[in-house]
Nucleic acid binder design. Structure first.
Lengths: 331, 331
DNA sequence: CAACGTATTGCAACCGGTTGCAGTGTGTTC
DNA sequence: GAACACACTGCAACCGGTTGCAATACGTTG
């Protein structure tokens, strides 16, 4: 069995309280006893039990990290940054993979069972109601990469997807394309709808420019490939704004397979600027999403909520910008 | 405050024990009380506190999942499969990102503090001593993707890296290349050393075949790109066995950038068969590592150790095979 | 030297469950 | 109808810590 408070207390010749206090910041203990306790503890190899202490303090330092897409390469960066950021602050990520179960009920219940201090919902495809279910249950929650609404019910950190849609349309037009298309992510995702709205806004406001749009079943290479094949058989547009980078690469691949040259016969612009978009044999022109800032900010919000769980919900939006690489022809 | 046992007991008009027992499998409770308790519990929205119960049962169902490379795309699949597999068995992954801290001490201490039931070390680059530190501390551990030694001190699930080295060399030779090279991962990683050993074994046993070898600083696109540039300036070999797929893609990219045509002027074979190796605009010939089986098996071992923590350590190896795509010229 | 303020300390109750044990009630058996 | 086995049930102690409170110790002050 593991070493407990009692063992250390016995060895140091003090009470259990004294031991507990030497290990809690700011408690009243004399240097003499603190020293005795430290010595006994290290001799025995004592490790305080965080779970036991959470019982009285009400804090576990466990943060639920839930996501619904473990196959999109963008999540490599997301997980890396989240885990590091949380670790730096002494918080522990408890991972939840939503791949099948899109209903919040089950994960909510599980995360409550483990008394997580807060939950981060990292997804651009889950409906706002998902994160809200956590809030309704009294669990502090941040929705990273979520939709910005005018009256958010939960903290949201992300980008302005409507503006991204505009940005993409403008960029395609600036590069001389006229027959545009939006090859979106899942139709029901709010991010998809917002991007489409922005895209349409610019297209409709620009004379001589037309558009079509369609949606991929999910954010994956295969879905992008398949949907681009569809588009090609229906008569391809000149340039595509794809829902994200992994979709773009699938689409790119389908275009090449069909013998279309990129960027001359067909232009593509993605969204995310994930690491491999910059790989020289991919060289995808894309809209950069400031992942690092979004995650840093999300973690800031989480820690802020730890101190004030009822903190008034806010939306934090970060600007995006186009990164020119090789999939749009030169202006 | 959350609903506790006591609240439910009060409402149902029974003792706390009765409530506790209705929520534990196989405990002795009559149907009548069970029903009363269930009713009261659901009316109040009671959620048992897993952490509190862990105090007496000694089980948290928390599994530490530690890894040192969150940037290699292969880990997308790894995390997806691990989290799903663990969830299916009612276990919870507590993620540890080792990106900076390669010393087991700190993560060990943290995971002990959270009383994890077991730890999975998912890495082909950490030394065996890393996983052993957990075992020495009495924490059940499985080293996934670790090195198979003749007398393992901890459970290891992975592949035979020496055999992979042989397989790669044979494959390159079969495809008609004669001037071979190994562009390995980190030099100090046991997997790198083993793969090199197998590679050399075949090269030396085959007349008319020569080899050189060098190492990338880490498993990343950039490192592969940089090391291939080095190789090219030093006079490139005809074909390369790269330490893994992401390295291969970096190398591929550098070769193309230098104007070398693949697979004619330069052949490349990778290792892992990660998802994007199959993307049609990459089409990497590579050695398939059966990730799914390795992870399933690792989880099996973990659950077995939950019941028998002193289970005799074993090594489980899974066979690999070459997946022919476009980066070796036809035989 | 007595009175007093402050810093330490230990006691004991509590956090939310679990579980050994003894007591109760029911149904069986003869 | 008495003896007995067995299924339930609640009590109380315990898991490993934390913390309010009262007791003690100590150095100061007048």
């Amino acid at each position: 069995m593991a070493i407990t408070l009692k063992d250390v207390a016995l060895r140091a010749g003090v009470s259990r309280s004294a031991v507990s206090r030497t290990f809690t910041e700011g408690a009243s203990v004399s240097d003499a006893t603190r020293k005795k306790v430290r010595k006994a503890a290290s001799e025995l190899g004592y490790r305080p039990n965080a779970l036991a202490s959470s019982l009285t303090t009400g804090r576990t330092k466990l943060i639920g990290l839930v996501s619904d897409n473990f196959r999109n390469p963008i999540f490599l960066e997301v997980f890396d940054l989240f885990t590091r950021g949380l670790q730096e602050r002494g918080l522990r990520p408890l991972l939840v993979n939503l791949s099948e179960q899109k209903d919040p009920g089950q994960s909510l219940q599980m995360l409550q069972t483990y008394s997580v201090d807060a939950v981060i919902v990292a997804s651009s495809t889950l409906p706002p109601s998902f994160a809200e279910a956590f809030r309704d249950a009294g669990v502090p929650v941040v929705n990273s990469f979520g939709r910005h609404t005018t009256s958010p019910n939960v903290h949201v950190v992300g980008i302005d997807n409507v503006e991204c849609g505009r940005m993409a349309a403008r960029s395609l037009i600036d590069h001389g394309y006229r027959k545009l298309a939006f090859l979106g992510g899942p139709k029901e995702a709010t991010s998809t709808q917002d991007r489409l709205a922005g895209f349409l806004e610019i297209v409709r406001a620009t004379s001589g420019v037309s558009q079509t749009h369609s949606f991929a079943a999910q954010y994956s290479f295969e879905a992008g490939f398949a949907e681009m094949q569809n588009c090609i058989t229906n008569g391809p547009a000149e340039a595509y704004f794809c829902g994200d980078d992994v979709l773009s690469i699938g689409a790119l691949s389908a275009a090449q397979a069909a013998g279309l040259t990129v960027p001359d016969q067909l232009g593509i612009i993605g969204l995310n600027d994930m690491e491999m978009a910059g790989w020289t044999n991919i060289a995808l022109t894309t809209i950069h999403q400031p992942i690092r800032q979004i995650i840093t900010s999300s973690i800031e919000l989480v820690t802020a909520m730890l101190n004030d769980p009822t903190r008034y919900p806010e939306a934090r939006l970060f600007p995006c910008h186009v990164v020119e690489r090789g999939t749009l022809r030169p202006i």
